[in-house]
């Protein structure tokens, strides 16, 4: 099951050129661009591991694409996303975040039901991938 988190996730995977264009847009807006990766696809897993520091002082997308490719080399079967942080006063949060790399196989999620008191029911999402310990998931 293809997970859909962040911008452009319903589109086919972005090409490197498209990624560059998006990153260029972020840089032109003065946002700091990050590269992050994870192997836990749960939608509420907000904080991914950072690949190096946020890149504040770059002027061109090539530097970020370089880091994305380095990250892909190190984690070819992880989710990798590029996020852009806007530090302007009153915003101070992410403006854009999109996935640039995903595992070749995404096993998806299991829905778990739990009976509670009365006839109420609790639902839970469980990613099949997280059955295995970190590092062996994909």
């Amino acid at each position: 099951m293809r997970i859909t988190q962040g911008t452009f996730s319903f589109l086919p995977d972005l090409t490197d050129e498209q990624i560059s264009t998006q990153v260029k847009y972020c840089i032109d807006n003065g946002w700091a661009v990050n590269v992050e990766y994870t192997d836990d696809p749960h939608p509420r897993n907000t904080y991914w591991e950072m690949w190096g520091l946020p890149m504040f002082d770059l002027k061109d997308a090539a530097g970020i694409l370089f880091e994305v490719n380095e990250c892909r080399k190190a984690f070819p079967n992880h989710y990798i996303r590029v996020s852009a942080f806007d530090d302007s006063h009153g915003v101070e949060s992410l403006r854009l975040s999109f996935i640039v790399n995903r595992p070749s196989e995404e096993p998806g999620f299991r829905l778990e039901r739990e009976d509670l008191r009365g006839r109420s029911m609790r639902y839970r999402l469980h990613a099949y991938a997280t059955d295995k310990p970190t590092g062996q998931r994909y």
Partner: peptide, 11 residues
Amino acid sequence: TKEVIKRAMGG
């Protein structure tokens, strides 16, 4: 070195 190179990319 990579940091500097990244900063100089596009220039």
